[in-house]
Design a protein around this nucleic acid. Structure first.
Lengths: 203, 203, 203, 203
DNA sequence: GATGAATGAGACTTCATTCAT
DNA sequence: GATGAATGAAGTCTCATTCAT
C-alpha cells in the first residue's frame, strides 16, 4: 500500500467501482433489460461519457460487473472454507450459500440475472468460475479420494448437494415459503447424506 | 364444420401459435432482451401489425408465451405421472425432467429465460405453476402422509430432490460435462433416497 | 316517397348516416385527431371495410361530415328566419345561435373542431356556407337597402353582431361563466343596436 | 460572463426556441394533426432525439408552444395598453388585435389552432390566459366602476366588443373580404359604442 | 354489398455512443 | 480526465387501407 496505489485506488478505482455498484443496483431493481447507461451514470454520480473511460462499451460493463459479482459471491460463500472436517466444511459452505442467497442485496439479485442469459457463458466466465470455486471442487475431490463420497463427477455432486441450498434460498427470498432453522438444518443434512456413501448397510 | 372451415380454423389458430413459436425461437437464440417485435413478425412470416391483433402488446406476448411454455414443460414432465409406486412415479418425473432439460429445444431454452427475471413472478404465473405442477405436489404430499418422506414442505422436497435433475441437465446441455446412463441413474436414486426416511436405522 | 326511396333510405342511406353520426360522436369526444377509422366502424356497428363503400377515404368522410354538420347547424339556426320584422328576425337568429352553441351535443362540438383547421377552407365548403347562410346574408342586405343598418359589408355585420352570440355560448358551454336570461337579452340587444343606425341623434 | 459564454447562452436558449419556432411553423402550415416530431426536428435542424432533451414528449412540446404563443399574442396586443382614456385604450387594443390577427404569421396561424381543440383548456392554460390578459379585464372593470360600460361580466363585454375584431381579421386573412381603413375604423367604433352606456337618451 | 384479418408505412420515443468544450 | 448535449438507429405500436371470402 504505497501512496501511489492509495491515490490510484481513491481516484481511479473509486470511480470504476462507483459505476459497477450503480449498475449492480439498477440491475437488481429493474433487471438487466432496465439497465441504461444514463441511469448508471446518474446513479453513480458521473457523466455518461465518463463510463466510457472505464469500460469500452455496455457489453464490457456488464461482463466486468458479472465477474465482479461472481467474485463477491465466491468470497462470501467460501469464507473459512478450509476449517474442520469434510462434513463441517461442506455444511459451512451450504449454509453460507443459503444465507447469502436469501438476502435481497443488489449483489445477490444481480447475480441471478446472469444465470440463464444466452450467449453469456463465455470461456472467460467459465474459467473465472472454475478458479473462484476451486475450493468447492477440491472438497468433493478430497471426499472422492477418501472414498466417502458417491462416485460422481464433482459437478454432479454440486448439482445434487448444493443447488438445493440456492433453490431454497431463492424460494424464501421470493416469499414463496418460510423455513425455520430446523428445516434448514435438516435440508442441509439431507443434502450431505445424499452424496455420502453410507457407512452401515442400508436399504 | 366442413373440411374447409376445419383447415381455416387450423390456419387461424396457427397464426396465434406461429407468433408464439417465432417468439420462442428468438428468445431461445438471442434471449429475452433480443426479442424485437419486428423480428418476431418476420420469423413468423406476418406483418408487424398482425401481432397486435393477437396480443395487446409485447408484455402480453411474453406473458402468454411464458404460460404456453410452462404448460408444455409440465405436460412433458408429468406424462404418465400417476403410474406405479411412489418411487417409480418420482423417478419417472425426475428422468423426464432431466431428459427434457437436456434438449436445446426452443421451448426448453426459452423456459429458462424466465426463471430469474425480476417482476415476472406475478400471481397469475404462480397460480398456473401451482395448477400445472399439482401432481408433483401431490406426490410429495402422499409420501408425507404415508410417513416415508422426510418431514419438510413439498417445496423444500422439490428443491432437494428435483432441482438437481434440472441442474445436471443444464450442465450437459451447455457442454460442461458428459454424464453416462449409469451416472444419471445413480444421481436419480440419490435424490430419491435423500428425501426418503431410511427404513433401517443408519449412522 | 315511393317504396324504392324508402328502402334506399333505410338500407343505403341509413348506413351512410350511421357512419357520419359515429364519426361526429367520436370527434365531439376525442377531437379530430382522435378519429380512427376502426373506431368509427365499431361505433357505427359496421366493418371497417364498409366505410370505404360510402366514402373514398378518411378525408372524404371528414369533408362530408363537415358539410352535413354545417347543414344541421344552419337548419337549426335559421328555422323560422323569415318571420317578423327585421329586428325580430335578427334577434331570433341570434338567440337560436346562442342556444345551439351552448349545447354540448356531438353536432355542435364537432362543428367547432373544423373552424380553424388549415387547408379545410375549400371552395366547396365556402360555397355551401354561402348557400346555407344566405338568409342571414339577405337579412343584412335588406337592412342595408332600407338604410337602417350601418354601411358595412354583411360579413362585417355578421362579425360584429353575430360572433358575440357564439362566443358567449362557447364560454358558457366550457363553464367559464354563467349568464342569466337578462344578460343574454341585454347582450342580444346590444349586438343589434351596434349595427343599427341610431334614429335619434346621439353624442 | 465573457462574450463567449454569452454567445453560448444565446445558442443554448436558441435550441429550445428553435424547436418551438419549428413546431409553430409546421402547425401554421399543416395544422396540429400534421405535426410530427421528425418534421419538427428537421425543420429545426436538430436530431429527433434532441427535442426530448427540451421537452418530455410531444404533448409537452405542444403545451409549451401554446403558452409561448399565447404570451406573444398578449404582448403584441397589449403593448401600450395603459396610455390614454378608456376609449383610446380600448380602441388601441382592438386595432392591435385586428392588425395582429390579419397577419398570416406562423405565430398567429398556430394560435388559432388551439382555440377549439378538445381537452386543451386545462387549468394551467386558463390561469396563464387570465394573467396575460389581465389588463384587458381591468379595462372593462374600470369602465364598469365608472358606470360608463354596460352592466355585463367582462367576459361578455369581451365577446361583444373584441371578438368581432378577431373575426374580421380572420376573414381578411382568409381572403374572404377586403376591408378598407374606413370600414375598420367604423367597426371599431361600433364595437366600442356597443358596450358603452349612451350618455344622451336614445330610441 | 359486407366483412374483418392483414398489411406496412410512419408515428413517437429511447438510449448507446460520440465529441467539442 | 470529465462533462453532458447531441446524435440517429432502432424499438414499440397505431391506423388507413386493401382484399379474399
Amino acid at each position: 500500500m504505497n501512496e501511489r496505489s492509495f491515490i490510484f485506488d481513491l481516484i481511479m478505482h473509486n470511480k470504476y467501482n462507483l459505476i459497477l455498484r450503480a449498475a449492480e443496483k439498477i440491475i437488481s431493481t429493474s433487471g438487466i433489460q432496465g439497465l441504461s447507461m444514463q441511469q448508471v451514470a446518474s446513479e453513480a454520480g458521473v457523466a455518461a461519457g465518463t463510463i466510457y473511460r472505464y469500460f469500452k462499451d455496455k457489453d464490457e460493463l456488464i461482463l466486468e460487473l458479472r465477474k465482479d459479482v461472481l467474485s463477491q459471491v465466491a468470497a462470501a460463500i467460501l469464507q473459512d472454507h478450509h476449517l474442520g472436517t469434510l462434513e463441517e466444511r461442506f455444511k459451512r459452505i451450504w449454509m453460507k450459500m443459503h444465507n447469502y442467497g436469501k438476502q435481497p442485496s443488489p449483489t445477490n439479485l444481480s447475480y441471478e440475472q446472469y444465470a440463464n442469459l444466452p450467449g453469456t457463458h463465455t470461456d472467460e466466465i467459465r474459467a473465472l468460475e472454475m478458479k473462484l470455486f476451486e475450493p468447492l471442487h477440491s472438497l468433493f475431490e478430497e471426499g472422492l479420494a477418501q472414498g466417502i463420497i458417491q462416485p460422481l463427477h464433482p459437478r454432479a455432486l454440486y448439482a445434487i448437494a448444493m443447488e438445493p441450498s440456492m433453490a431454497m434460498a431463492r424460494a424464501m427470498r421470493r416469499g414463496l415459503i418460510e423455513y425455520d432453522e430446523k428445516d434448514i438444518t435438516l435440508a442441509c443434512d439431507l443434502c450431505w447424506r445424499a452424496i455420502v456413501i453410507p457407512t452401515t448397510p442400508t436399504n
